[in-house]
Nucleic acid binder design. Structure first.
Lengths: 221, 221
DNA sequence: AAATATTTTTAGACAAACCTAAAAAATATT
DNA sequence: AATATTTTTTAGGTTTGTCTAAAAATATTT
């Protein structure tokens, strides 16, 4: 696989992340994400187009090509493995790992990364709960976790409820929670393990430990 | 401490290494070392001079200022810690570590390096036997090792002989080895632990295990 | 010490990655 | 549908780090 500059890699990674929400990404969106000016985006998109990493038609946004996606997954693999290393081995705190991994991810020796992966015991999720692509670029699309295990502020979609009793469904109906509901856990109260959750376009609500243990969600990236 | 570009760092590091042999470094020397053209060296020296990292007078070579030396030791610390990590933890072979460390050394988070140092148990020498500067830039200037323990092809200076008998001195005289003799161990024969050593401007000679165990040398960088 | 050779610097050019300001295209509003 | 607004692109400029070719300084040779 070819080698790309740090700038190119940052653009590719940012497009990958924005694509998750949106199908196609716009110039202004990407400029905001990367804190550059729209003109710089246009320049880089022309370049990435000639390298066949993005599909791009002037004035009509862009998205990664299959090759571009492969490159993106490689970068994300490096980033998340380093995050895991920093948190697990060097005892960095959860919040500190991202910034350092931003630099380390651009060191592109494949052997380094595959050996690091092995050293770490082939971890499947980084410290934020995000899945780590394997050496072939395969990535766990999402996994179901109980609301109690969801990291704070991580967008997720309710995918399963284990108790289907009338009482449970009544409560879920009242709280306006169902399969497909998008939510984030905002706070966790250690006293009774109750959670404050935020459903899109609603004000935050509280749910008990008992309820939360019966609700499962997938990360929504 | 300020931050320097990858290019600046590579120039500073190269000057540091060339200074060891020579007091002051010349434009052509550095161009050869960095595989760039002399004109590029002049450009960069002007820049490093304004940043007070080198002493430089047009046409009269250059050397690192005290600040420049501090920066160099920081880079060398990062490089050697990563080499140690790659060899010790990721099981890279001796020869492979250098190239990968060339990239990793430019990730400049001080916290990362100090935590890596701690994780590795504060190693004092990298896999090539070179000393690792500590977090204050202090570096073991050299250490005495027995010829048997000298890495292959590592320039060293004879610093001590433990047996001072006439027989020993006779042999040393014959082999033209004395305190201050500069040599490199070129091969090691496992059969009898004899060594093939090369003294500057002479053809290689062989010395027995018994003799080698009584000769001590310091790395000559 | 003058002539020649080598080394180093200057002058000007180029690519990458960014910028500002103006022009063009697409979208929204009335 | 015409106009106004927003978005995107183009045109041209800047900085960093490189280059080539020519000029200047230093070193060597006779």
């Amino acid at each position: 696989m070819l080698n790309y500059s740090t700038s190119e890699e940052n653009y590719i990674k940012a497009i990958f992340h924005l694509q998750h929400t949106d199908g196609t990404v716009t110039t202004n969106e990407l400029a905001a994400e990367l804190k550059t000016k729209p003109a710089s985006i246009t320049d880089m998109m022309k370049k990435l187009k000639t390298k066949k990493l993005v599909h791009y038609q002037a004035y009509h946004g862009f998205r990664l090509s299959p090759d571009g996606k492969k490159v993106a997954l490689g970068i994300i693999r490096r980033h998340r493995l380093w995050e895991y290393f920093l948190a697990e081995k060097l005892k960095f705190s959860w919040e500190e790992v991202h910034a350092v991994a931003e630099d380390l991810e651009h060191v592109s020796s494949k052997k380094l990364i595959d050996k690091l992966d092995e050293f770490l015991g082939f971890p499947r999720f980084d410290p934020h709960g995000d899945p780590i692509p394997d050496m072939h670029g395969r990535i766990e699309t999402s996994r179901q976790v109980c609301l109690q295990d969801l990291p704070l502020n991580k967008p997720a979609v309710v995918s399963h409820v284990s108790d289907q009793s009338n009482e449970m469904l009544e409560l879920l109906g009242h709280k306006k929670i169902g399969i497909g509901t998008r939510l984030e856990v905002k706070r966790k109260f250690n006293f009774d393990n109750s959670l404050e959750i935020k459903i899109r376009q609603q004000s935050p609500i509280n749910i008990s430990e008992q309820l939360s243990k019966n609700i499962f969600a997938k990360y929504d990236e």
